[in-house]
């Protein structure tokens, strides 16, 4: 998968899909077993620790839980200054100026910079974490479920903030989320993961309007929309039976055991990612046949009529 400059690429999937592992690989926190990670044209997987550390200024991250992302023993100022000091910036006035400017950019009054994390609300803390991530003017920020723990009204505020920052600073985001509705709203491109495998990728609106992979379709169907009339048509008609899903390595498609469209071929051979349109890839043997039987997918996720 790729993250284009100045764009937001979504990475969506359920637990166990390997979203966060991928983030750790990109950030160099876990070693790469196979394959490569390229950044700005250069390979960064397998770099020696010292050179990897130097990339810290250009590659940053924001996590799901803002309170545990900040050391409770230190002030906000200290936490924000840490990445600058790691860059070798030790001039006090420069640090103070940059901390102040960045806090202002994320909408935190800079006179609260000497307070400790527990004195802020969740939304404010996430703003502070974003400030720490952008203070070194990175090119790529990984947002690992960065809005998942927030309440709806605060989530909207943070999503807007991220959108504004991207426009001002031409940031690229890798937006990791389990919530396909949020991904649909704020990402330009999306990659759908299932058990560590890419199911499909492409332009977000295209992928969510006409999914090419049955898993994407299932994910969209399961995600409820806040419109009772539309949702009643989309809900599961009857309860499904809970049967253990066989795990363990198979040579076939990882989604085949749950896929309603699976044929014997799917259990035997793992489908390769193939291009089906410009910038649009899918890993499914049954595409496009399966879509013909289920036209619902096309009407299902058109955003509910505005209120």
């Amino acid at each position: 998968m790729t993250v284009e400059r100045g764009r937001t690429t979504g990475l969506v999937g359920e637990s166990g899909a390997g979203k966060s592992t991928l983030a750790k690989v990109v950030l160099g926190l876990v070693p790469v077993v196979e394959g490569t990670v390229g950044f700005d044209g250069a390979e960064i997987s397998g770099l020696p620790a010292v050179r990897r550390r130097a990339l810290g200024a250009r590659l940053q991250a924001v996590y799901q839980d803002p309170l545990s992302s900040l050391n409770p023993s230190y002030s906000v100022f200290w936490s924000l200054a840490e990445p600058l000091r790691a860059r070798g910036i030790s001039d006090r006035s420069e640090i103070a100026a940059r901390v102040g400017a960045t806090l202002e950019a994320v909408g935190i009054e800079s006179d609260s910079r000497d307070r400790r994390p527990h004195e802020f609300s969740g939304g404010q803390l996430q703003r502070i974490c974003i400030a720490r991530a952008i203070i070194t003017s990175p090119e790529l920020v990984i947002l690992d479920e960065a809005v998942s723990a927030l309440d709806l009204s605060v989530q909207a505020q943070i999503l807007n903030l991220l959108r504004d920052l991207q426009a001002q600073r031409s940031l690229s985001y890798l937006f990791i989320s389990h919530d396909i509705a949020v991904v649909r709203h704020c990402c330009h491109d999306v990659t759908v993961l299932y058990q560590g495998q890419v199911m499909e990728a492409g332009d977000t609106v295209e992928v969510t309007d006409s999914p090419a992979h049955p898993y994407t379709h299932a994910l969209l169907q399961a995600s409820p929309v806040a419109n009772p009339v539309a949702q009643r048509k989309r809900q599961l008609p009857a309860p499904t039976v809970a049967a253990p899903v066989p795990t363990g390595r198979s040579s076939g498609c990882v989604y085949a055991p749950r896929c309603p469209f699976a044929v014997p071929e799917c259990h035997r051979r793992r489908p390769q990612l193939r291009e089906i349109a410009a910038g649009r890839t899918v890993a499914c043997h049954r595409y496009p046949e399966w879509t013909e039987g289920s036209t619902t997918s096309r009407v299902a996720y058109t955003p509910a009529q505005r209120l």
């Binding site: 359920e14 637990s15 166990g16 966060s20 998942s148 389990h178 253990p244 899903v245």
Partner: peptide
Amino acid sequence: GAFANSGAAP
């Protein structure tokens, strides 16, 4: 863990 696959959301 015959029953313990696919857990909770993060």
